[in-house]
Every structure is written in C-alpha cells, then in structure tokens.
Design a protein around this nucleic acid. Structure first.
Lengths: 202, 202, 202, 202
DNA sequence: TATGAATGAGCTTTCATTCAT
DNA sequence: GATGAATGAAAGCTCATTCAT
C-alpha cells in the first residue's frame, strides 16, 4: 500500500514545498510534457521515492499546483475591490479591475499558458478551470447586479459570460502570444471602453 | 533519406485521404496525444509504411490537417459577406457573422479544441493559429474601416483585436466547454449587442 | 517468381550500369549502411522495381560491385609487371610495385574502406576479400619463387603472407585513416626497404 | 533528461557488469549490428530500462566496452617488457613481443574483429582505435629509440608505423580470418625475422 | 518491361511508477 | 521515512522487398 502522506512535520512540509517549487519552475520553462519526474526530483534535491510519497502521481502534483496557482491568481484580481463603491462602478473602476487581471497573469504567464493548454485536452484540468471560470463569472455577475438599476443590458447572466470571455481572451493573447506591436495599455483601454459602453452605455 | 511522396495517382490520393480522415476522427475522439500512429493506420486500413511515405512524421500530418481545417473554418465564416452592404453594417449583419462563426465551429468542435490546446504549448501549431488569428483580425479591421465614418471608436487596430478575442473565446466556451445552462442564442445576442454598441453606439 | 534479369539489350545494360554507378558513389560518400535503396534508384534515375529486376537484393548489388572493383584494383597493381625482369627483382622494382599498390587505392579509397569494414562482419564480403587476398598472396609468392636462388628467406609461403599483410595494412592506414604527418613516400620507402632487406638481404 | 547513472552500490555495479558481459558475448557471436538491445538485456537478465539508465544508448555501451577491451589488450602485449634489456633487443625478444601480440588477440578475437570492422565506417570507433594505434606505434618507436646506435634504419618514425602495421595485419589475418593451412608459429617466425632484419640487420 | 504504392517486421528509446533495502 | 535501482509497456520511425498495374 502506498498511501499518500499528508505532511505534518516541518521537514515534510519543506520537502513537499521544494518539489512543488521545482515543478512549477520546470513546467513553466520546459512545458509539462517536457518535464519528467526524474528532473523534478533532481531539481528539488529529493529522491523519486519521496516524490511518490507526497503525490499519488505526476498528475496529482499538477492539479494541486494548479489549484494553488489559481487561488493566487484570483486573489490578485479581486483584492482591492473595497477601494471603490461597487454599486457606483465608474469607467476607471472597470479599467482598474482589468489592470489587475493583466497583472495577475504576471505571476507566471508560462505556467498559466501551459496549464491552460491542457484545459482543452485533459478533463481534470478542465474541471479545475471550469470551477475557476464560474467563480470569475459569478464575481462579474455580482458587480453587474450591484449596478442593476444603471444597466442598459437585460441578460445579466449572458453578459457576465461574454464579458468574462472577452477579458480572458484578450489577456491570453497579450500574455501568452504577445500582443505584437499593440501595447497592453491600448488593449485595456479598448476593452474597458467596450465593456463600460456595453453594460452602462456611453 | 525520407522523401515524402506527393500522391499523384488515384490510389495514392485515396490512401492519403484515408489516413487523414482516420486521423481526424481519432484526434477528435481520443485527443492528439492519445492517438498513436499504429492506431491511425489500423483505422485507415493501411500500413504504417504508407503513413510514413505520405507524412514525414506524426506532427507533419497534424499540421497539414490543421491547415486544411482552418481554411474550411475561415471560409464558412466569411462566405456570404456579399449578402449585405459592408459599408452599412447593421445589427443583424453583426449577428449574422457571429452566427456563421458559431456554425463554423460545428465542422468539428473536437478537432478544433484539441488543436487549440496545443496552440499554447507547441510552437508550430501556434504559428499556424497566429497566422489564422491575423487573417481574422484583418477581416474584422477591414469591416470596421468600411464603416469608418460611423464609428464611435478611435483605435480601430486595438478594437479589432479586442472584438476578435471576445468572439473567439465566447465561441470556445460555448463549443468546447459547453455553455452550461445558457444557450448559444443568448450568448450571440449579448455578444453582438456588445460589439455593435461598442463600435457604432446604441 | 522474381527472376533476376541478365541484361542483354543496350538499354538494360545502361540501366544496370547507372544503378551500379549511383550505388558506388553513394556507398563511398555515405557508407553502405547509410545508403538505402530508395536513394540509389533516385540517384540512378530508375525505379525501385527496376532495381530488383537487376539485382536479387541490395547485398547482391554490393557483391557484384565489389567484385568489379577488386578486379580493377588488382589490375592496376600488377599491370606493368612485364616492364622489369621478374627473376632479377631490384630495389626499385619493389618500390614500383608498392607505388602501384598505393595508386590502386586511389580508384576509390572510400569504397574500399567501406567494403573492407564489412570484411570482418559479413561472411559474403569476407569470402570475396579472402579470394582476393589469396590471389595477391599468390602473386607475391610467384615473384618470390622467381627469385628463389637469391632469397635469404626459407619459408616462402609464410613470407608472402607476411609481406602482403604488411603492405596492405600500411596502405590502409595511409589511405583510410590518413598517414597523419608522415607522407606516403616515406612509408613506401621504409616498407620497400623492409621487404627488400627481408627477402633479399641488404 | 537522460542522466546516465554511475553505479555506486553493489547491485548497480553487478547490473552494469551483467549488461556489459552479455553484450560482449553477443557482439562477439552475432555481430554488433546483429545484436539488438532487447536481446542484450534478455541475455543479461535485466530490464531494458536498466540498460538505458547505465548507458546513454547502444553506441555508448559499445564505446565503453571497446575502451575496456583495448586496455586489457594493450596490457597483455607490453606487460613483461622488464624481462629483457630493452636497449639490447635480441631476436628472441622481438619474437616474445610478437607472441604476446598474438596472445592478446585471444581475449576475444571475435569482439576485436567486430569492432575493428567498424573502425572503417564509424568515426567514434575510429577515434578510439586511432588513439590505440598511436599508443602502440609510440611504444614501438620507444623500443627503436632505445636501440638507436645499433639500428640500420634511419627513419624511425616511418619504420615504427610500418612495423606496427605489419604486425597488426598479420595478427588480424591469423586471428580473424584464420591463417588457413599456415600455422601461427610460422607467421611469427617470418614476421620477427623480417622486423629484426629490417631494423637491426641480419 | 517498368513502375512505385504498399507492406510490416523490427529497432531504439522514454518515462511514470514500484518496491526492496 | 527515505532512497534510487529496476521495471516494461508503449511510442515513433526505417527500409528492404513485393506485386498489382
């Protein structure tokens, strides 16, 4: 029986953390398929045996890492929501949130890109990302609800999805592919203009 | 010496087509990494030797298939552009194009999803998709240019990118992930409303 | 039944010759294992089907080529034997023969090297080379016999073998490996001195 | 990442040794091209995975084995050099060394033959053999130098090469091809006579 | 007689995972 | 608890040769 250990002692926690850090770095640099377990444990300075006592398998490691990552990502986006009156959303507020979104990708655009890729081919990864999407769409919907009486749109649910998708994909293009000659500021400008004008009118 | 045969005779063309058809089907069903060459040729009813006389390697097959696919996809979207006055874009025209986009995904949402996944981790796939993106963004920009004097937006280049990204990702969410409880019509409605209102005002 | 055709018509002879020429060139350049049949027929400008109607298989081609080559090689070495009195071998005669040997390798040192390699791992090639060796050793023995009364050596048979081996390997080193800083003239000098002094005394 | 393990524990050393022993045997019997990795590990009684954790690839195994082999070979030839006055080389000393040479081939004439074959078609093998040749030629040169004042030859460098080549090839013929009806003793006799008479006169 | 499409056995190598020490 | 040697299924690809046209 190879039970997966829940690290309870200091050293254990450190070991597990070391593995995750090494894997995060390698996944970002060389891709997930391009990184094998030997390499991870070598970088982490632990044995392959240790690896398998902390993680059921390679996939489990990835899922745990992704979960952690998306939590940090989410927090960065929505952290300073209390700085403005959420029921009186102004143009600059929309822009501020979008700026947060773009910054949140800077934690590790590479890791995000690599895992995002798997979203479309691996059902476990997909599930995690779907949960994340729901959370984000909810948050957008929540903001819309709070400005309900000022809205020009009727279908808040659909609008939240559309807005979320627009933002996500503009960010992906900018961060994963490089926005080419266009700089991010211009994209954020147009994007926030589009959203503001869509939900609250010009 | 691995010369890749260019099929010139009937039998050749058939064989190559059989391989591509089988691969298309398997890639869609079981994923690209989940499909091996042995399986492809078995499904196609040809030998592994034939496979490698038509394609330098598995990757070359994929790239050729993707190229074909994206051409069909692009055509479906922009095929009936002559049906309306492109310098007098109306709300229903935007909606018509969006409807085309959604339909274009129905050629094979699965194949599209599988290859789209690789876009973020494989540089060859990425190059093909980037070219496609440019083509699409250009087309959007062209439509905007043709309605220049009616536009409320200033930065056409950035707007074209933002619009393309919004549409693409809404379609991906709907087609790859399933729009959940929301039906596609509602998404298209909001999306076209957002775009129309963004570029031409309410 | 796939009988191997003996070319009797002009075109046939040409075709077969073209294949052999192409193969000779490719074997010399890229090695025998490094050359595949497709490449040979492509270079020769004939079809793979033709190839197999002139040669039972790749090996048969090689054996036929080697046979041809060794005949030319042998002729070059012993061609001007009539220029000197073979029963009155002088120092310069020995040197002249050795010079012929070195020149004979220049037909194609590469082809010689490649086939020589197989001598130690392929029994068919070995047989051909063994026959060739016997022929050469006989010829050396014949020269020795013709100078019998002047010889200091007793065991002509063994001496012929030893002489042949010495010459062969010095030539191989010079021609296959490059004699390094030592030039061939010096090697020929020492070699002929050694042989002359061995068989006929100083 | 293919890290090649350096065996540090008992079991490791045994496993690696088992692989090398099996390979040595198979290479000798069936030739190097005629032996595949599956067969080696099967004979060694280890897994294919083990093979590739000790050797980067099949070639690396061969090179390591050849290096080992040539060291043993060299040692056998020159081991008892201290038994005679090297500055007073006598006829029987030359013969003794030649006898050593012939015995050194008996470690494994087959393995020697197989690798020697590759010398002319594989540049890595060639490099190792060239290094070995240099070492041997140097040793011969060293012996000649030590008898400098007694020599009849002038060009020691060329003579060393010629002598080495003569000996090597006579040994190869005897050991790889079989000396036919001639027995080795006769060859050694003539060879040592030739060399002695060449360098020191009759 | 010539062609070249088709064949498929066979090879090397990778890597996630297990388990004896 | 930790180690790392050992495992072996599985994958991609080559190439001499056949045979229907």
């Amino acid at each position: 029986m190879t039970s997966v250990r829940a690290p309870q002692q200091k050293r254990s926690i450190q070991t597990k953390a070391r593995i995750m850090k090494a894997a995060f770095h390698l996944f970002a640099c060389k891709g997930i398929h391009g990184t094998n377990s030997k390499e991870i444990v070598k970088t982490a300075g632990v044995s392959i045996g240790s690896f398998y006592s902390y993680f059921k398998n390679k996939k489990a490691l990835l899922l745990e890492m992704l979960d952690d990552y998306l939590n940090r990502h989410y927090s960065m986006i929505w952290q300073h929501l209390d700085l403005f009156s959420i029921d009186q959303l102004r143009r600059e507020d929309v822009k501020a949130i979008l700026t947060n979104v773009f910054q949140a990708y800077d934690i590790s655009p590479e890791f995000h890109r690599q895992t995002h890729a798997l979203r479309y081919s691996d059902s476990d990864i997909r599930r995690i990302y779907d949960k994340e999407r729901e959370r984000e769409v909810s948050q957008v919907g929540y903001l819309l609800e709070n400005n309900k009486n000022r809205l020009r749109i009727k279908d808040i649910t659909a609008a939240a999805i559309v807005i979320h998708n627009a933002v996500e994909n503009v960010a992906h293009t900018a961060k994963f592919i490089g926005s080419g000659k266009i700089d991010e500021a211009r994209l954020i400008n147009e994007l926030s203009d589009m959203i503001y004008c869509f939900v609250l009118a010009d």
